[in-house]
Nucleic acid binder design. Structure first.
Lengths: 238, 238
DNA sequence: GAACCGACCGATACGGTGTAAAGTACGATA
DNA sequence: TATCGTACTTTACACCGTATCGGTCGGTTC
């Protein structure tokens, strides 16, 4: 029997009036998004449910539907908020290469602050104001530079770097913090890998384990990025 | 009142014995994975639930737990199966550039056959036999080629191309088939974009809409890939 | 041949999800 | 002051992954 039913079991006459509700202070998309981001930062994207977000604002889940029309929209707003953070690092300076590199590093830093960001990045196309501003600024940094006279070449360069960054961050994230920490994961997968190698069917993997100097994630990211930028530079001359 | 309860409402004496169950033919991981892939191909990843997969094999959801210990494992098996498909296209031939390009295109074709593949790609590190074979084959195709004497340079090249492919496929997928088809999507986002442009705050976006020749997705993918490969080639000389 | 035992299967149940629908109370407006 | 719209809440639904457990069966041992 619910509390409600328990109350109504008494007659109207002796039943107290409902406590005058404490004038719920109005919400805002910004508050909601902040709460959602806090949850995602703390416990991962899976912890972002309309119920939990609502609860952290002393509201029921349905209350949020006054500000959003679906959970997808909330995620969209979260993405845009992160782009907002990135923009607050200031305008892009330097030549096209420095600009693209800076954008890549900003994205990576954002992904480090908000691990869930990566999972949301590749979803549907993002059209929030901060995203548009981000794209606009990136294009503007390249536009007009020698070799980037036509907008198509700008799009190719930005698109390629973007794709690399997206994939690299996803790979990076997949190797790290999978619920279990790095050590735990290696404890499970290590022996398996060893067993696979000892079958003799994977000589290259064996060589990787034996010879590879595993540089830090930062270095790996930067080297790959340099590669991509070199490719773009090579294309400019042609 | 459940069927069970309805039955038990009658006395034992007049209650029929349970129909002798039709000796459930044994399942296998392969069958399960095939069923899951069929579901995902038809209705998207979200349609893959243990209940539905089970149902399509005339089994309850719990039956599957004899073959898997979690849904994550099922997804992992699905990924490995796709790598198996890719491997069946035959061995890699040609120099390092052709090999990497072929791998990229194979991945892209696989993602076209199985749209859900992209969403699973960047998740946790994949360690299935077909994945290992894929990595092994890719490394082997590069190993020893001039400029790829050290395994580190092989890893850099493969890792960079992989990252690009991953990101490019994700971007590509995000622009296409978002539940609604392309036309519907543009009908919604188009006017919005127009309005944003007409604020005058996004001159570069305006230029994109005005001047850009939007090549097909195939061309865009290939151009970006060429860029990345050029970057790797440039690095070899040094 | 009978009795046991272990593996497996299925039903049930729990705690969670997003959100549709209906109910309810309050502020503004007529 | 009465009414109405609007915002919020409650309730409910359909579904999810999976823990638990009772029952059924096949194989093994006395």
């Amino acid at each position: 029997m619910s509390d409600r039913e328990k109350l109504e079991a008494r007659l109207v006459w002796e039943r107290p009036e409902p406590a005058s509700r404490p004038a719920p202070e109005p919400l805002s998309r910004e508050q909601i998004v902040r709460a959602a981001i806090a949850l995602a930062d703390a416990d991962g994207l899976a912890a972002v449910s309309l119920r939990k977000v609502g609860a952290s604002l002393d509201a029921g889940p349905m209350r949020l539907y006054g500000y959003l029309s679906s959970k997808e929209e909330l995620l969209e707003l979260m993405v845009d908020a992160v782009y907002g953070e990135m923009a607050s690092e200031g305008p892009l300076t330097g030549d096209w290469r420095r600009a693209l590199s800076a954008m890549a590093q900003r994205t990576r830093r954002a992904a480090k602050r908000h691990a869930w960001f990566i999972d949301l990045l590749g979803g549907r196309p993002h059209l929030g104001p901060h995203v548009l501003a981000h794209v606009e600024a990136t294009f503007a940094a390249l536009s007009g530079a020698p070799g980037f006279e036509h907008i198509d070449s700008v799009m190719l360069a930005v698109g390629t770097v973007d794709a690399y960054v997206l994939g690299a961050l996803r790979n990076e994230a997949s190797k790290l913090e999978r619920g279990m920490n790095q050590a735990e994961w290696e404890a499970v997968s290590g022996p398996y890998i060893q067993r696979m190698i000892s079958t003799g069917r994977f000589p290259m993997l064996a060589q990787v384990v034996r010879d590879a100097t595993h540089p830090s994630a930062d270095v790996v990211f930067e080297r790959g990025l340099d590669c991509v930028l070199d490719g773009i530079a090579a294309r400019l001359g042609r």
